[in-house]
Design a protein around this nucleic acid. Sequence first.
DNA 1: ATTGGCACTCACTCGCCCCGAGTGCCAGGA
DNA 2: TCCTGGCACTCGGGGCGAGTGAGTGCCAAT
Lengths: 385, 385
Amino acid sequence: MIRPLREREVVGVREDPRPGDTRFSEPRPGEPRSGEPRLADSRVEDPRLDRRRLEVLRAIVQDYVATQEPVGSKALVERHNLGVSPATIRNDMAALEEEGYIHQPHTSAGRVPTDKGYRLFVDRLSNVKPLSSAERSAIHAFLGGAVDLDDVISRTVRLLAQITRQVAVVQYPSLSRSAVRHVELVAITPSRIMLVLITDTGRVEQRFVETIPVSEATVADLRARLNALIAGRRLSDVPGRVDDFADQFPHEDRPAVDSLVAALLEVIVEQREERVVLGGTANLTRFRQDFPDTIGPVLEALEEQMVLLKLLGETTGPSTLTVRIGHETGYEGLSATSVVTSGYGRDGDTVAQLGVLGPTRMDYPGTMGAVSAVARYVGRILDQA
Amino acid sequence: MIRPLREREVVGVREDPRPGDTRFSEPRPGEPRSGEPRLADSRVEDPRLDRRRLEVLRAIVQDYVATQEPVGSKALVERHNLGVSPATIRNDMAALEEEGYIHQPHTSAGRVPTDKGYRLFVDRLSNVKPLSSAERSAIHAFLGGAVDLDDVISRTVRLLAQITRQVAVVQYPSLSRSAVRHVELVAITPSRIMLVLITDTGRVEQRFVETIPVSEATVADLRARLNALIAGRRLSDVPGRVDDFADQFPHEDRPAVDSLVAALLEVIVEQREERVVLGGTANLTRFRQDFPDTIGPVLEALEEQMVLLKLLGETTGPSTLTVRIGHETGYEGLSATSVVTSGYGRDGDTVAQLGVLGPTRMDYPGTMGAVSAVARYVGRILDQA
DNA sequence: ATTGGCACTCACTCGCCCCGAGTGCCAGGA
DNA sequence: TCCTGGCACTCGGGGCGAGTGAGTGCCAAT
């Protein structure tokens, strides 16, 4: 008996992945970590048997991903040298089906992996496929040409979509994780001030503030003090530091300072509403045969910022791949799609997530390799900026 | 004989469209304006006949748009009181087909409008359908809640997609058409200056400039003089005015001033690369029956900024609707789609375009009404800002 | 445990026929 | 000159049935 695995797994990726070393961490909340999953209860059966069954599952996944057609026992032994006869494979297949890893569309058809089967494949039967050096240098060249943050993000999303040939999703560096580089105050009129917040990730947010009229000198003073107070600080630290900021100023300026501080906090808090950019939607149509009636719901889901953010998931460590398969995405309309995401960041610190969405029958090793490589390069680019 | 019409038409829309007053202006370049198109050569035939034929065409378009199925002569006389028999209609249909306004998918099927047929319908057989007052107030309420330019645009695109149930495209107010509200210089370090350009349409563009080190005082002086020179001016006027700007400064500051001016011009020129926002892509799937294999090319086209910009077309006057039908879009992949666009702007001046893309078999009057209404409201919102 | 053999299942394809919507044409009537 | 009813014709699409073949599960033998 093969013990079912957890639904959601996180794979730590290294520059140089050693085979067999992909580890599975982060058990689901509430579920105690129980060590490495075993292939099967080790008490009774011949371990070789389980090893072959897993090999069969891997072969099924690979063939199915390649051909998009249910795979039968005969074709399997022909294409992979499993060293046994089709009949034996059939037995294994029956067992795998019993345990829910594969499924038979109809009686006289071959087998198709289930979500659970893909899960096992991703967790135990495949390694992240490193990109070719040509691909790496292409990534480098393409991302290196970016001129500002917007450009980095838009190039990244195009790049991801192109090399994975799937739908790419990239989140803007989250404001709350970045630090203040500079705050600028511009008096458009005496009673209308523009507040510009510049972060070290290159984001620039601005907002107009209506106040009681204040003098140029006051504005300059405010600017200097505000920068002294929060420049270089994490955005998350800002609220605490500006708490009693207004106390430094004479009474007549308090209202103006208060509205400015309020606006500043608003920018920081409200903009936690993260921006997400999409690309490669057209790639969905390549799978029309796969989910003929599912493309609608998928497009709908992709239009919802909230859904995208949830798919990207909570911020994980940089270079940490997360894979969600089919129903694991948590959305009915996405039951035929999988999502591969990774954190990216600077200085080893994750600032946001990026990833790819495609059919459950995707090339997981390749996709994971691409996502992780792109995440790493984007991090480097941000470091340079 | 009915004289073929021009391919691309522009319809001026009024708040209160008088029936029969939709006019057709702007002949194609190089093609001399030849007055109002006639229904037919007036020398021989009974004008009533042509009127009926046009009525038949209108009925065909309406029924086809409603049912999505080829419409036959019998069904036509049943659903519209044309006062004649099916046989007569068949004759008219044959004539209309002869002239290329309708088309027969196969011998034993009803008729379907051609692009040319839709063209005639849009130009002569329909009026822009005003929105219901409920819709109007919904638009007003929804757009009125916007807090900044980004918000206005993103709300607009969602709104358009929702009320037309098609794919919405909105262009950001073009920089070159706006005026400078303020230029801000922020010395991040002595040799790194941030240039922020604020326009009266609410756009904020920024860029970092590396220079030789300059003093705070110089920066302040630069800022003051620069604003004096270009604040309130059209972006398109800026290049001319900053031409000999550096001459005002002592020699040692010239390099810094030069790089700043260069950066400023770059922002203005480069950002002519207009931004376009999409929404409602999922609505495409509602028409899968229409263009089953065309959805792929359409999605591809939508991913190309350049294509979108071309579809939106050159900036036209505000409240001027443009309709491009099928092949008129100029893209092979969009031969089954039509595009309805309108300029929008402030102070009666167009700053950008917005519009909607859908199948050629769309509800033109309704779509045109929605696009024109939204364009008008967006203009008003911008005026208030 | 593995294997070859065997009977069985069942989705899919192809050919066939039939139906009916829709047409074009024509001759007679307004 | 235009309209109309009648009529023969076309042809896409649905329904039906047989044939095909990939794939299976089971079983007895090794």
